[in-house]
């Protein structure tokens, strides 16, 4: 449990660090992806119950004693879809910016703009 929390905190920090320091637009998009993965991981670890099975029952049901929490799983699906949508939108914008300036670096874009 603790190691996973550490991993989540590290992933989150890494993603944020990439966004804050890197100049390349694609890398910024990647940083956001890393942060999002950290959150999805958090969803999973919080829904985890030791020894629990997946929240999909058998037809005769009640065969399982312990089932992991289905709510975070449903929420994480929503979060994944939203994240994927925004990333796609971001990549489309990056393509447009690249077509205009022929560069992906924020510094050079600012220079070209004058």
């Amino acid at each position: 449990m603790e190691q996973t929390f550490l991993a989540i905190a590290v992933l989150f920090g890494l993603g944020l660090y990439i966004i804050l320091t890197h100049q390349n637009l694609i890398k910024i998009a990647m940083g956001i992806g890393v942060m999002e993965s950290a959150i999805i991981l958090l969803f999973i670890i919080l829904s985890y119950r030791p020894g629990g099975t997946a929240p999909i029952l058998d037809a005769d049901a009640q065969a399982y004693d312990l089932i992991v929490d289905p709510i975070p799983q449903a929420l994480s699906l929503t979060a994944i879809v939203i994240g994927a949508g925004t990333t796609a939108l971001m990549l489309a914008l990056i393509i447009k910016i690249y077509n205009r300036y022929n560069t992906l670096y924020i510094d050079e874009i600012k220079k070209l703009k004058g």
């Binding site: 289905p70 449903a74 699906l77 929503t78 879809v81 939203i82």
Partner: peptide, 24 residues
Amino acid sequence: ALNLVTAILFDYRAFDTLGEATVV
């Protein structure tokens, strides 16, 4: 619905899923 995640997504919290579809 035997799949509880589906039950949540498409019945209990179907309004969320409508929003999700809207995002796509």
